[in-house]
Amino acid sequence: MSKYFAVLLLLIFSTQIQALEKVTLQLKWTHQFQFAGYYMAKEKGFYQEEGLDVIIVPADPNNPNVDFRVLYGQAQFGVFHSGLLKQRLEGKPFVALAALLQSSPYCWMVKAQSGIYVPRDFQGKRISLLGHTENGELLMMLQRAGVNTDSMLLYSGKKPFDDFIAGKFDAMQVYSTNEPYQAQQLGVATREICPKQFGLNVYADVLFTTEAMLRDRPQQVMRFRRASLKGWRYAMLHLEESLAVTKANYATHKSLAQLAYEAEKLKDFIRVSGIPIGKMSAAKWLWIAQLYHLDVSQFHEHKADFIYSEVKQDPASLSWVLIIAAVLTLVCIPMYIQLIFSRKNKSHLR
């Protein structure tokens, strides 16, 4: 009998392995705690439970705009910024699946002795050049305070962090989890002036896919999203374990202290009271469209297809049960019949 059970387990296991669907997740930056939820979804087997074999690809820091890899099918899923909406209105068929950061971690970093405390203090100051559309809220924050950003002096050198520390300009655009830590390690006192502090809460780190993926593989999209959000919930509840996994298997180039600093900073962007992790709303996306002066009528035309709405049923999730049930049926019935006959033979022999 033990032989039959061994065969049964082998069949079930091999069926699960063969059925895993390979998909690629393209990150928007290099490996760091910023993507810990995806790491934990992979490491804890959440993706595998959904029938997925996920490859997580970091971005090239010299070319971090990775949306084209998803657009052209080199990756099935990606992480981008709130500029994804602009891309959609410009004709790229992107679908926002979840917003992992409820606010943007992009901030201005100034030295503690600079005298810059609020946006209006930036008037006449020299700032670093904004290189990406994802941090447009930094300029928007200044403009809403009445600062004439068109007349501001811009630093555009090749070593912004070093030159900021050397005092060659006044305010540097930073990702709240990275450059402030570097300045702290050098003993340079700084503070951050962030859009979030002044009511500009735009989404960041938006998980997305394409309309083609959603049309052709809706269940795969649902399962990937579900496992990813499960990974993020796990990461937030088990920070020490998530830090250890991130350090050991992904961000090997960063110290544990640096990753811990990043986790401490990001958790308030991810976990917001009253908002489930990853939750998006049409009202906030509309506000983002208005903030960036996008065509509101276009937004209303696209919002139903742009903002993901989970389908009600997931037949694919039942497929595992059906497969296992079928295997059990095929294997157990012959075993049962053989058991009956063996008992009858024994009784005859007696």
Rank of each mutant, 00 (worst) to 15 (best):
T177W: 05
N178M: 11
P180S: 04
Y181T: 06
Y181N: 07
Q182A: 12
A183K: 14
A183W: 10
Q184P: 06
Q184I: 06
G187E: 03
V188Y: 05
T190V: 15
T190L: 11
R191L: 14
R191Y: 15
R191V: 14
I193E: 07
I193V: 13
C194V: 06
C194F: 07
F198Y: 15
G199M: 03
N201T: 04
V202W: 01
Y203A: 00
Y203Q: 00
A204S: 10
A204M: 00
A204V: 00
D205Y: 00
V206H: 00
L207N: 00
L207D: 00
L207V: 00
L207K: 00
T209L: 01
T209I: 00
T210R: 03
A212Q: 14
A212D: 10
D216I: 03
R217S: 13
P218D: 11
P218N: 11
Q220R: 13
V221R: 00
M222V: 12
R223A: 13
F224W: 11
F224E: 10
R226K: 12
R226S: 11
A227P: 06
A227F: 10
S228L: 01
L229G: 09
G231P: 03
W232P: 07
Y234I: 02
Y234W: 11
A235T: 01
A235N: 02
M236S: 10
M236D: 07
L237C: 13
L237N: 14
E240C: 02
S242E: 09
L243M: 04
A244C: 07
V245I: 15
T246R: 03
T246K: 08
K247I: 11
K247M: 09
A248T: 14
Y250G: 02
A251C: 06
T252Q: 14
K254G: 04
S255L: 07
S255W: 04
S255V: 03
S255Y: 06
L256H: 15
A257H: 02
Q258F: 03
L259Y: 09
L259M: 10
A260L: 07
A260S: 12
Y261H: 12
E262K: 02
A263S: 10
K265D: 05
K267R: 13
F269L: 10
I270F: 03
S273W: 11
G274N: 11
K279C: 01
M280W: 00
A282E: 15
A282V: 15
A283V: 08
A283K: 08
K284G: 02
W285K: 00
I288A: 06
A289L: 01
Q290Y: 01
Q290P: 01
Q290H: 03
Q290L: 06
L291W: 03
H293F: 14
L294Y: 08
D295Q: 09
V296E: 13
S297E: 14
Q298E: 02
F299T: 03
H300P: 11
H300Q: 15
H300I: 13
H300M: 13
E301P: 08
H302I: 08
D305P: 04
F306R: 01
F306V: 03
F306N: 02
I307R: 01
Y308F: 12
Y308S: 05
E310Y: 05
E310H: 07
E310F: 08
D314G: 13
D314R: 10
D314E: 12
D314L: 14
P315Q: 04
